[in-house]
Each structure stands twice: as C-alpha cells, then as structure tokens.
Design a protein around this nucleic acid. Sequence first.
RNA 1: GGAGGAUUAGCUCAGCGGGAGAGCGCCUGCCUUACAAGCAGGAUGUCACAAGUUCAAUCCUUGUAUCCUCCA
Length: 884
Amino acid sequence: MKAVELAKSYNPKDFEDRIYQEWKEKGEFGPKKDAAGEHFSVVMPPPNVTGILHMGHALNNSLQDIIIRYYRMTGRPTLWVPGTDHAGIATQNVVERQLKKEGLRRQDLGREKFIERTWLVKEKHHDIIKSQLEKMGCSCDWEHERFTMDEGLSRAVREAFVTLYERGLIYKGKYLVNYCPKCGTALSDDEVEYENMPGKLYHVRYPYADGSGYITVATTRPETMFGDVAVAVHPEDERYKAIVGKLLCLPLTDKRIPIIADSFVDREFGTGMVKITPAHDPNDWECGRRNNLEAVNILNPDGTLNDNCPQKYRNIQAVEARELVVKDLEDGGYIVKIEDHAHDVGHCYRCHTVIEPYLSDQWFVRMKSLAEKALDALKKSDIVFYPRRWENTYSHWMETIRDWCISRQLWWGHRIPVWYCKDCGQVIVSREDPTCCPKCHKSNLEQDSDVLDTWFSSWLWPFSTLGWPEETEDLEKFFPTSTLVSAYDIIFFWISRMIMSSEEFLGKAPFRDIVITGLVRDIQGRKMSKSLGNGIDPLEVIDQFGADAMKFTLCYMAAQGQDVLIDMNSFKMGSRFANKIWNATRFLLMNLEGRNLVKVDEKDYSVMDRWIYGQLNSTCLAIQKAMEGYRFNDAAQSIYSFFWNDFCDWYIEESKQKLLHGSDEEKDRAISILMDILESSMRLMHPFLSFITEEIYQKLPNHTGDVIVASYPVFDEKRCYEEAHALVASLQEVVRTVRSVRSNLQIAPEKKLKVVFRPSKDFNATALISDELVFVSSLVGASSFVIDDDMKESVDGAFPANGLGYECFVFVRDAIDVDAEIGRLKAEIAKAEKNLAGVESKLSNEAFLKNAKAEAVEKEKSKRAEFLEKIKKNSEHIKLLSSF
RNA sequence: GGAGGAUUAGCUCAGCGGGAGAGCGCCUGCCUUACAAGCAGGAUGUCACAAGUUCAAUCCUUGUAUCCUCCA
C-alpha cells in the first residue's frame, strides 16, 4: 500500500467549499430513500430577509446541523427544512430608508411598485443568507427551502385566517393598540419594549363642578387630559369615599367628568387619584370598559391633537402640545407641583420610537382557547423544554395571554383576506379572491388595506413548510417535527404561537423537544449589536479559522441554556483541535507506505488495543447520552479528550515503537488498528467537525462512501474493557511519576537515566509495564527501566518517587537541588496529613460508619491507607535525600 | 412589583452529596522527523456570604448580597 500525502498543515479553505458543493450535488442533505425507523425532522427558524446572519444564527444553526448530521448517520429518515422570513416591519423599514435617501416616501411609489422593490431587497438578502448557511456547512435540504411569502405558505396563511374566522376566533374591533407613529402601524403587546426613562410627574388641580374646592391628580402626560372622562379613586380609600360620584370641571375645557371608584387605583401612587383617559392608556382603557365610560380619542394618526381638543391645541404634535398645556395650566393656577419621575416607556421593537396607545380598528385573534390547548400539550409532556425551567415561562405567558392584534398598517406582508362590498357593506372573508358580493352580487369590492403580522405566517412554519393545508407526503412523513432549536428571545413571538397553531389546526404539537439556546454575547457579556460595534461576523470567523473550528467551538461552549460569551480568540480552540486531527491523520497516512491492512481479531488485542477500543466505545456512549439530552458541550468535550488525550497522546505514541521498529507483521497489525480507530473517529466526529472529517475520510484506504451518510459508531456493552482501562490508568500514573521527577529536577530530555521500578505485590499493572517496557522507557527517558518486584536492585543514590502501589527510583545523582526537593516532599506530607485528618474524623465517627453506604466507608478506608503510605514513603525519601 | 438565571482558577466556563475540573492565559524545560497551532511538567481556588438538612454539602433547603434576563 502507498502512503497518502496530506498537506503539511490544516487549511480549511482548501476543501470546505468544494466538499459542500459535492454533498449538495450528490443530494446528500435530503432524506434517504432507504432510511428506516422513526423520522427525524427539524425546521430552521427562518432568518429575516432584512439582514445578514450573525453569531446567534451561527450558534443556532451549528447546533441544528450537529443534531441533523447525528441522526442522519444513525440511519433514520432525516429532514432539515431551511427558509427565510419576510419580516414585515423590518423589511419595509429597510426599503423606506433606501427611499428616503432618494428623497422619496413609499406613497410616492404606490403600493404595487413599493412591493416590487421590496421583493428585490428580499432576493438580494436571501442570496446572502443562503450562501452564509452554505459556508457554515449547514446540511439543510435546499430542495425543501421555503419563504414565508411564497405561494404555498400564502395559501396556508389564508387557510389559517379563514378557519379561525369561521371558528369565531378572529374578530375586528375598536381597540386600544400599541401604535408606532414612525412605522405607522399597530404592534402586538409583545412587540413593545419597555425602558425606564426620566420624565416629569405633574400634579394638577381639578376643581369640583359645584365650586366647593378641588382635588389633585398626578399624571405623566398632561396633554391627554382632553381625553379624560373620569377621575378614579380606590373604593376602599377612606380619604375619598365621600366624594365618589361628585362632578369635576376639566381645566382648559368646559367638560364635566365624574369621580368614580375602581380597585385598580394604586393608593400609594401620587395623591391616590388618577385621571382616566381610556383612549390613551391601556389601564384606563380597561377601567373605562368596566365602568362604561366613553373613550375619547384626541390624536390624529400622525400624532397631532385632533378635533376633540380645544381649537387652540389642534394639529400640534403631542410633545409640543404638552408644553403648551402645562403653561396654560400654570397660568390658570392649576399646577400644584412638577416632580422628576422615572417611569417605564414603551418603544417600538423595530425602530425604537416611543409607542403611543392608540384607539383604532384592528383585527384580533381570540387567544384563550388556543392557549388552553397549548398548555395541555405541556401538561401531557407532548412538548419538553431543554432546559426545563423555560416551561414556567411558557405556562405563565399562556395563562396571562391577551388577544393578539394581527393587523399591521404596512404594505409588505400577507394582505388580510377580507373584502368589503362598497355597495351593501357586506364583509367577505374568503380563501379565494372574491369577484362579487355574495349578498348584493355587485362587484364593487375593496380588500382590507392592512397586512398580517409577520408572526401570523411564521407560527405555521412547522407544517406550512411541509405542504399544509394540502395533505402532502412530506406532512405525513415528517410531521410532527422532532426538535426545535431556538434562542429564548422568541419563545413568545414564535415558539408558543407555533404550538398553539399546530394544536388548533392539526391537533398535535409541532415538535416534541424544544432546545432553548443562550444568546451569543461578547466577552464582557454584552449583547452583540451594530451600535456597540462588538459583533463578530461568522464569515470572518470562517475565513480565519474555518467553519469546522467555528462549529466545534460554539458546540464546546454551548452549555445547556447558558449564554455564550466569546471573542475572536475563542475560536482558536476549535482550530487547534482541527489541526491536531489533521496532523494525526497525516502521520498515520504516512505510515501506510509498504503496509497491508489486516483484520485483527478481538482475541488478539493487546491491553493497549483493548484500552483504546474501550475509550472509543465509552465515548460513543457519552455522545449518545449528550445528544439525547441536548448537552452539546458534553459531547464536544468527550470527543476532544478521546481524540487528543487518549488517541494521540497515548495510543499513537505507543504505536510509534511498533511502526518504527517492529517486524513487517507487527507494523501491518499496528497500522491496521490505527486506521480502524481513525476511521471510526471520523464517523464519530463528523457531526461536530463536518468538513475535515469528510476530507480525511475520503483519503482513508478503509473508507466506504461519504462520511456524511456513513453509519454512526454505536456503543457496545461488550466492548467496555474495564480491566484494560484500569491497567492503562496505572501505567499512565507510573509514567507521570517518573516524568514529574525528571521535570522537577530539570533534567534535559536527551539525558537518559536508569530507572528502578518497585511495584507492591498487588500492583495491577506490573505485567503490562513489563510488556510495554520499550514504550514506557521511551516515555520516561530511561536508559534502562528495571522492574524490581523482589527488591533486589540497589537504589543507593537514586532519587525516589512514589505512587499508589509502587515506588520509582531515578538515578540522578548529579544536578539536583536537595533542599528544594525536601521542601516539596514536606509540602506533600502536609497535604496528605490534612486529608488524613479528614478521613480519620469520618472513620472515627460512629454515625458515619453506621449510616453511610458500605462503598463510601470502604473508600474512606482505602483513602486512609493511601495517605498513610504517602506520608511514610515521603518521610523515608526525605531521610534518603538528606544523606545525599 | 413578580418570575427565572448567574456567582467555582487571572479570563470563559463544566461539575453527578463522599478525595476541587477543562480550555485559554501564566511559569519551567524541550524544534523527541504528525503537529511549536506541538510535547512534557508545574503553579493558581474561603466553590459569593450566612444559617439549616445530612454521618457527610461546591452540590439539597432557606435567607442575604451582587450581577443579568424576562414579565407587569
């Protein structure tokens, strides 16, 4: 057999793009025809077509890719559906910003042209996103790619809307909604972000209508007083019980408003009296409804005061009007005092403009019955969150849910499938575009001008992407999906709603396992953001370190549910590991020269062979458990320590003796096992380091097909080889003991020294060390390594070191610092004595002996023996050293 | 105001009631022909604080402090 040449160093750019194209061309991302067993499917959280992917996407998609590749290799029919989201407000804002630069508004283009232009932006960003996902190595099935506004999904949206309407779960109503004056649209409750801001609290006098004095109310927004319809006090507030029902004069107007009682009033806040402005405050809205009060809207859609206000204030922006009103109140002697007051102010989650509560006609989904089904799904464990603690958050949201405002006054999105007959006023809600009014049969119809909230399409994602409402083969085969991976910031927007819609339309949960990842932050724990400039671009990481390094590093750091704090340097870890894999492979492939691969029978395994196969096997188990529990960091760590610490540091090192100095037969045998382990390792590591393992796998003489579709190594109970594990652990301990002596004494590696090794009679690894004498000698730099189990060797003048069950004597008469060594040994004795004291106190404690598990007692006893031995040996060694 | 999370080595973080761990960084010595992106050895900890439960607490319970997030 010929050696296989590998480039001198690991350079991911040489093969990552090529391999991705090969996979794609061979169609290896889609579900296999011959796959068997339960399906495994995942839908990708669709990125917004506004932007480019950030580290959060990299984390999210890396984990999905790992899961998908893992299950694909286990042989199950596996599907990962990619796609993008039209992101209504966000995308529209991008286009409007572009227009603004050209001095245009969207109205200048008109709806149709504006949407055409938005599609262009969508196409451009979509292409960027797709190429980014490919760069990352995501093995999603591009044949199944979807966009929330493509034809099929638009049908699903209509179906959902009309079905809910028919079930009485969608209604149109006048309602106080969150209104963003800048975006010019209503927002759902969840789209409002609150921020504590400094403001003023104005204490204003409202005189009694009968002239018998006045009361004082506190407000942060005096300009809304024109919409006041009452002043409320707490019904049990003793101070004000007597005045409930009295009328007040509303200053600056000639209006009369009553004092009412309502228990929502906070008696501690301000004067304990609040003005009620139903059209401009959510709490007041609820209060107004409870008390049958009129809602007086005082604002125009552009945020200026309207005709419900006195002439003087009309058509002035609210903020300016406030100053004017305050001045007039002051002039009129109505202001008692003005205090500084910080309070929470709602902002638009897209443009961060201050939200205005605004009374308008909007469409809503009645959420209560949907939420109940979604809660049941959790109670029945149809869905499980990883980590579990998110289940509380989910339940709480479901229990306190409010109706969902789904209409948006935007152009980019799904038009609401509602038409109005201009002749007879008939409202038509239809799956198909109607041509005439079913009531008056005239065709003078006008479609509702609003579009639906973006989330109204994404909440159907797990089944709309599979063809719903058609009963497609995909839907049959891959629904419900298996696992959803998402960050916690969209549990409410998206995850919860998907569960509701799926329960409502398909009668089951859309996925079973919900993996909630942390957020990716910078090394100081701050969110990565454009304004801070602290973001890391995944493409830059890939450029510097490779996609494998990025994926592996993220996986290694993704402890369940924890935020991931990283900087550019963090990715060195994955990059070094990949380099290690590359070089280990290079070495092994070099050694193929002139060799024949042979089948080594299990019964011919040496102890070291059994050990490495045992380690490989237990790593399979560790990974299986880690994947089942979505403990990605555990999986990454198992792989890392197996390949690097076990395989490279010990097994390959041991094999070198045979590869370099063995007979042809020994060489064949050694390289065959090495290639076998290497081949298994590539399959084992493929989900986590996809490109490098494929590149290497193709070059292995013992490979079959592509690793992406190879079978995943399976844990085998019969191949644990625990005794080999214990033996090798002992051997490693002996090696470390001698190395430590040499290192502490600063003995140059090239200086070979005689070592006498004295095992106790029951030391388990004496035979192994004897068999591996050449290996051990080379690791410890011994000129000769004498196993002296009958205490015949003279150790005069040798430097002693001891371990559990053995002593080593290193012949280093020259060049040692006797005093320093004595100091070190004394420190060890002190530590052992401290540990011994702890053990003794346990063992002299009758309660411990009585209550503790037998193994625990035994363990303490063996610890005692160990510490005693250490103290004894070290004392002897100090004596010996003192005589030097 | 309510809920959740975090607090372990210089940094980022694992950790399963019974002798404190990893990666990076640091110190020392080595280019031992796979890898200096490497090898070997080493140092570094009141496991935030205080009680409680337990034979035994970094781990369980309660409280406190600090920080973060979400909800209202």
